[in-house]
Nucleic acid binder design. Structure first.
Length: 572
RNA sequence: GCCUCAGUAGCUCAGUGGAUAGAGCACUGGCUUCCGGAGCCAGGUGUCGGGGGUUCGAAUCCCUCCUGGGGCACCA
């Protein structure tokens, strides 16, 4: 199903092509009309003609039939376009009968691998994992709605030297007791005990180092113990994901260690391609354009001088796996901004090696930090890292306080408090441009006014309450829609722009664009709600029409929030 | 030093080379025969970090400087 913007563009293109083949109309939304066309002036410039005359030619060349009610030439050569109400109504009807509300399927169906969240085994998740998890999840949900095949990859840190001491500590503690402690989620306690012992006890250090060697050597008993740590950690991650309401499952966990068997081949194949240089005993690739502090070429270290592999090798192996085995045509890495150079280098080397062929997109979806009220990295009062579970629990408590006195039974209160808390936390995170840092502020994100999750949820709940009053779940689409009042029309115009908002979001992998759209939608709805009584509409036909607008708005809010990973409660 | 990201209203932030740069919060005033007042309406704010340049047109593109964050060889 084409979007209104696409349909309009089809009408404009021939008129522009007639004057210059391929000329871009530069069609945009507008606050002066339904759309504005900005492409006339640059075209006139290229043609060496008067822009207003060119505008007149364009206007004469547009087939307005059924779609366009008015084209007005304004200012130096803008075209302000007003759609016919019929076109809007037609689009709304089509939306209403479409499961995904008129969001068009992608023109080519891709296999998208999304690498996100990535906590570390034997460590608890903290606020630093929030953005990757929440942004990645939203991108996955949206790619799926667009018809792509999405492969989630939780690239957990499950390998490295700390596992020597962790396994030794596991042995010291006794498996049963250790598992009992880990299963309640006290991963940090376990880790810090091991660390303390390691720092204080030389013989423990020796055992730990020996254990690392056994682990890397594939010793069966060591691997068994290591798997216990991994399994308990994954179980804990899963509990956090369930609380947070993200789609990641244990099946999506493909840790760093999974790529171990492929690392030798990475070096060998790079070497065979003539890309590897030895530098101080390390096997390196020097992709062009990267320099270090001294201005010398900067290497991507594939194998360290101690024969060990660094994470560059793992990431390269992962690229190969994702392209060759999973058939990825697009790979997204939802990883913090500090890794930008690393990914540039990995992608560059993968391209040099032919592992990322032309046409396969690899994108580092970078994001900024979560800051505390002091605008520094968000920490607890004591200066420690903020555990994600603690953060979520506090959000639920605060949401429950805010909802107190609203006549919910205890079970409903608990459910709604969770939905509101997660909505608040996620919306606050997603609504800020991902490249920027943002300040974590409970009072602001949990407010029911302003651009917040709860405000959007509230808008949805308020619509649903209208249907409750009627004692119906939904109204059938009956072609009863009419746009008599300006507020009805404004709402309708915004409703049909959902696909444009999704497109804009995915162009830059910025869920904040969808957040803005949904907030604007809620604003348009309240404008409608204030001036157009639904249940007490002047007549049956108006009431039926307004109910359909309510239905569509609720559906759009629900779908949009779902793409952000936010639930839309029936009542709050 | 080099690279990179950011700098927009008192605060938090939007802003796809287009028209008078917009929201929210906060502040002030108003609105309640009304479907959820957790709402709505009205009030006013800006050297878009500074300075050049490109352009018919720049918050947006280019150069330069300032400020802040991050990165810059064997941790991931």
């Amino acid at each position: 199903m084409p979007t209104l913007t696409q349909r309009l563009l089809e009408r404009l293109t021939p008129a522009f092509d007639a004057l210059e083949p391929g000329a871009d109309p530069v069609l945009r939304g507008s606050d002066r009309a339904d759309y504005q066309v900005n492409g006339v002036m640059p075209l006139a410039k290229r043609l060496g003609r008067n822009p207003r005359e060119v505008a007149e030619d364009i206007v004469a060349g547009i087939d307005v039939g059924g779609l366009v009610a008015a084209v007005e030439i304004a200012g130096p050569g803008f075209l302000n376009i007003t759609l016919t109400d019929e076109a809007l109504l037609e689009q709304l009807d089509a939306m209403a009968s479409d499961e995904v509300l008129g969001i068009p399927a992608a023109t080519t169906e891709e296999v998208c691998v999304v690498d996100y969240s990535a906590p570390n085994v034997a460590k608890e998740m903290h606020v630093g994992h929030l953005r990757s998890t929440v942004i990645g999840d939203s991108l996955c949900r949206t790619l799926e709605v667009l018809g792509h095949t999405v492969v989630r990859r939780n690239h957990v840190g499950d390998w490295g030297t700390p596992f020597g001491m962790l396994i030794e500590h596991l042995i010291d503690q006794g498996e049963e007791e250790a598992v009992a402690g880990l299963s309640v989620g006290d991963l940090n306690g376990f880790y810090s005990e091991a660390r303390t012992k390691f720092d204080a006890d030389e013989s423990f250090q020796d055992r730990s180092r020996a254990r690392v060697v056994s682990l890397q050597g594939g010793d069966a008993e060591t691997l068994r113990l290591w798997r216990i740590l991994v399994a308990e950690s994954v179980r804990y991650f899963d509990a956090v994901y369930t609380d947070l309401g993200v789609l990641l499952t244990p099946q999506d966990v493909v840790g760093e260690s999974s790529y171990n068997p492929m690392l030798e081949a990475v070096v060998d194949d790079l070497d065979a391609a003539g890309l590897v240089e030895d530098s101080g005993g390390a096997a390196c690739v020097f992709p062009p354009g990267f320099t270090n502090r001294e201005g010398d070429p900067l290497p991507l270290i594939i194998r360290k001088s101690d024969e060990g592999f660094g994470y560059a090798a793992t990431d390269l192996a992962a690229v190969r796996n994702r392209v060759d085995i999973l058939g990825a045509t697009r790979i997204l890495y939802v990883v913090g901004a500090p890794q930008a150079q690393h990914f540039e280098m990995v992608f560059a080397v993968a391209r040099m090696a032919g592992w990322l062929p032309e046409g396969i997109e690899a994108v580092h979806v970078a994001f900024g930090n979560v800051l505390g009220p002091d605008r520094k990295m968000f920490k607890t009062r004591a200066g420690g890292t903020v555990k994600l579970q603690d953060l979520l629990a506090e959000g639920i408590d605060r949401a429950a306080d805010a909802l107190a006195g609203r006549n919910h039974d205890p079970e409903t209160l608990d459910l709604v408090a969770r939905q509101v808390a997660m909505g608040a936390i996620k919306f606050a995170d997603l609504s800020t441009d991902r490249a920027r840092d943002y300040v974590f502020d409970w009072d602001r994100m949990l407010a029911f006014e302003g651009a917040t999750g709860p405000y959007l949820q509230y808008a949805h709940a308020r619509i649903r309450s209208i249907f409750r009053k009627l004692d119906v779940d939904h109204v059938p689409t009956s072609g009863a829609l009419r746009l008599d009042h300006p507020a009805e029309r404004a709402l309708a115009r915004h409703l049909v722009a959902l696909p444009d908002a999704i497109e804009s979001m995915m162009e830059s992998y910025s869920p904040s664009k969808l957040c803005t759209y949904l907030y604007d939608l809620a604003q348009h709805f309240t404008g409608f709600y204030e001036s157009c009584s639904v249940l007490n509409a002047p007549d049956e036909a108006t009431r039926a029409s307004r109910l359909e607008l309510c239905e569509l708005t609720a559906s759009t809010l629900r779908l949009g929030l779902d793409l952000l990973g936010i639930e839309a409660p029936e009542r709050m």
